[in-house]
Amino acid sequence: MALTITCPICGKRSGYEFRFGGEDKGPPPQAAGLTPAAWCDYVHRNNCVAGVQKEWWCHRQGCGTWFSIYRDTTKNLEVAGPQSEDV
């Protein structure tokens, strides 16, 4: 297995140059009135998708950018996102 990731700035590079940043769960919920359970749901709980998921990566040993990609967790391969997002 040899993951490669396509950085929007630096192009396709070895996966080891990058740092994983979690499932893409969207922006954090507003703090006001957030219950411990709702907070935990955002911070700690995951969908644990065995398949394609959208996730954050940082080009740590490169330009430093955070960006999201789609990756198949059963194959550890970057894949194209859903069609609608391509435009």
């Binding site: 297995m1 996966g15 740092r19 994983f20 995951n46 996730e55 967790t73 059963t74 194959k75 550890n76």
Partner: peptide
Amino acid sequence: MDPWPNYTTQCTAH
């Protein structure tokens, strides 16, 4: 462990 989620049981050269 490669520090990102995976369900693959393939090994790495790294």
